[in-house]
């Protein structure tokens, strides 16, 4: 920035913005250690709500269901999102490409109540005609979640593929490698980090979904957000604060861990580059002597 005054203004925007984003979350965490049942009045330090949370069988069952669902969803949408990303960036023009692009971006902005209702009506009609999926449950939840999480995976993969130079892949193809081999030996290793973040994003979005799940779930497939929602609707509950704190700590731990791994890889790469330069210099010196 060119002068001190405007740089201070910019800094204050950031401080204000991040305070807005983080103070509510910090307050949730602080009040999860509140002795009092009244969530907003401090009554001393206690961890009793964590104990109560761990004894809430309905909550634990729902959490386990949600985790399993998020895992299968993330794996499936990784396949669909990656193929969609390839189709949008590596296959040139083909008929219906812009429709595919629309089908990929639309689920991200479509109001969830509409998507949820539409999927439910599809499942009901399919059951009438084909007898499948029988009733609503984990299968219908899985299909619905894959449909809206694949978009996010596709966007991440496609933007990574757009940054990459196609010439390496083209060179390999020219030299006689099969497209299959090129994908597994060249493309896949380069987009692996993007696939990892796509998988994680699909996992967290699936874990978090309330509205679409409520439309397409059955009586025996209550997910964690549905349990949290029915509890929150009735008012504040310290147990939800405890749950929030657990989620926030898991996410922060994940982010810090991946940050450390990435930093290590970067350092290793830098070191290897330095080593390579060193070796080249030494060889040059030997050659000169």
């Amino acid at each position: 920035m060119n002068n001190g005054r405007s740089s201070r203004t910019l800094l204050s925007f950031l401080v204000f913005g991040f305070a807005f984003l983080y103070v509510p979350i910090l307050l949730l965490v602080v009040y999860s250690f509140n002795e009092s049942r009244m969530v907003t009045i401090w009554g001393g330090f206690s961890t009793k709500w964590y104990g109560a949370l761990l004894q809430d069988q309905a909550m634990l069952d729902a959490a386990w269901k949600s985790l399993r669902l998020a895992f299968t969803t993330a794996c499936t949408s990784l396949v669909i999102g990656t193929t969609a990303g390839l189709a949008l960036t590596r296959f040139g023009r083909f008929r219906g490409k812009s429709l595919l692009g629309g089908l990929i971006t639309a689920p991200m902005v479509m109001p969830e109540v509409i998507t949820g209702l539409a999927l439910l009506l599809l499942f009901v009609t399919m059951e009438q005609i084909f007898g499948w999926p029988a009733g609503r449950g984990m299968t219908t939840l899985w299909i619905a979640h894959v449909t809206f999480t694949s978009s996010y995976v596709a966007i991440i993969i496609a933007s990574r593929l757009r940054e990459l130079d196609v010439s390496i892949e083209e060179a390999a193809l020219d030299l006689g490698a099969t497209p299959f081999k090129v994908f597994f030996l060249i493309t896949l290793p380069i987009i692996a980090p993007a696939m990892m973040s796509g998988w994680l994003l699909a996992f967290t979005i699936s874990l978090d979904d309330l509205v679409i799940s409520s439309f397409v779930s059955g009586p025996s497939s209550t997910t964690l957000p549905m349990v949290v929602f029915s509890s929150v609707r009735l008012g504040l509950s310290p147990k939800i604060n405890a749950l929030a704190t657990i989620i926030v700590s898991l996410v922060s731990a994940g982010v810090i861990l991946s940050g450390i791994v990435m930093m290590r890889q970067e350092k290793k790469r830098q070191k290897e580059i330095a080593q390579a330069i060193e070796d080249a210099k030494r060889q040059e010196a030997v050659g000169a002597a």
Binding site: L207, D208, F229
Partner: peptide, 10 residues
């Protein structure tokens, strides 16, 4: 990355 529902609850 944390729950949408819980951020609204806050």
């Amino acid at each position: 990355w944390t729950s949408f529902l819980i951020r609204i609850y806050a």
